[in-house]
Amino acid sequence: MELFKDLANLLNSWLMPLTFFIIVLYGYCKKVEVYSSFVEGAKEGFNTAVMIMPYLVVILSAIAIFRESGAMQFVSDYIIGLIIPEKYFPPDLVLLALTKPLSGGAARGVMLEIFQRFGPDSFEGFLASCMQGSTETTFYVIAVYLGAVGITKSRHIVVAGLSAEFVAVLISAIMANLLFIGKR
């Protein structure tokens, strides 16, 4: 198990440098204008980051108020806490699981809020990253994809999509709890 962890760590730590190396080498060999292509893409990246700013502000401020007022504590103690054991699945992550199918921006905000409070390397931060990476913004995707071609009868898409999200969240929670045994 320890060896597996070290190997996974090795793979993870070299994935990014290796990807960069392959992309640049392949592009250069194919005589692509690597420099100007990079700049072109980087501009898109800049725009994306600026574009999400209002979405972050809107959700982070609302959550901050919701928490500071004591409402979050109340909800987690008396409503969610009775259904889902807080130790294994903290209330902040319930919020993340509930917002993810609705809005990518809002879910991102919730995840960042978790990072701010617990730190990205904590159990909560870890689980939030897993959930964020293994789920998609179900309703947004359905609305955009089907809307683009004018399909109104979606048949079983919603059921399949929401089930996929539920399973991904469940597996994330199980994995995170297993990996953090004895660390909390």
Binding site: V24, Y26, S37, E40, G41, A42, A49
Partner: peptide, 15 residues
């Protein structure tokens, strides 16, 4: 970070 990553992807796309 986004600029760095999307820059790389643009190269991958063009190549």
């Amino acid at each position: 970070i986004m600029a760095l990553w999307l820059g790389m992807v643009k190269i991958a796309e063009k190549s």
